[in-house]
Amino acid sequence: MNDVFQLSVIAGILTSAIRLATPYLYAAIGETFSQRSGVVNLGVDGIMLIGAYASFYIVLITGNIWLGLLAAIIAGLLMGLLMSLISVTLKAEQGISGIGLYMFGLGLSSLLFKTTIGTVKTVTGFQSVKIPLLGDIPVVGKIFFDHSLLVYGAFLLIPLAWWVLEKTTWGLQIKSVGQNPAAADSLGVNVDRMRYTSVCIGAILAGIAGASLSISLLNLFQENLTAGQGFIAVALVYFGNWKPQGILWGALLFSTVNAFQLWMQVLGVKIPSDIAIMLPYVLTIAALAVATNRVRQPAALNKPFERGES
């Protein structure tokens, strides 16, 4: 029982948490861009699957991880264009289109997997890269500075996304079309173009989220590899109050509790496994319930824009 409080165990939990948080961070930051521009994309999980498949397949046949990453980006972009076409240009109901996109991604990735790969295979993906000096610090180095490039990328994405949204003219325009598209339009901001770009950025990041599973963390692909992680990512956007820093804490909370429960089981702490498994979800729901008091979602979320209607 006392084992839980050993330094090595705490370090192990944090190392696991950082790995587990990675796909959530990519996907949830991507969804933040989408939602900040006023589009709810519930198809994140489907896009992750397509991204995971595309990158895995390319690495399998070429052995080049960078080409694999590029494949995930292109796959994400195509899915993003499809979502934008349906929800922005054709103004379809966003929730339904997103679910449609999810099913499309799930079906297509399974089909392609069966026809081109067929059975479970593994690849050599992104390997851990120890950062010089920092990586040699005892304990801390192992926790934070000995991961694959895609893990570092996910954490660098947080300040980058914050900077884009809060400090650039472009971020201001994204937020404006999500808050009051008519006002943005009246100032010459091209609402549809901003939404297309934001949804596509979101989809590209979802594609990378998939790649972070299939060619970095797991190095394998199978049907429904993501197992609904994309939906948790969407929930994290609400949890994080549409802010990158909020999403970081949400993702870390979820993944730390998950890592914690795995360690509890490994160390043989006497609690039923069912309870341990429930822990991260219960805690996340509890935190979400507390957090909803301060939630302020983009005012034009889920609303198509048509000029002259107000």
Binding site: K167, T168, T169, W170, G171, L172, Q173, K175, S176, Q179, N180, A182, A183, A184, S186, L187, G188, V189, R296, A299, S310
Partner: peptide, 29 residues
Amino acid sequence: IHQHFMLIPTFTVAENVALGLKSSREPVL
């Protein structure tokens, strides 16, 4: 100046004014 103001309540006055314009330090506001 529209009858129903074309303003974004969650933005500051300066942000509302700057929206849609190029910045002198593009891409930074």
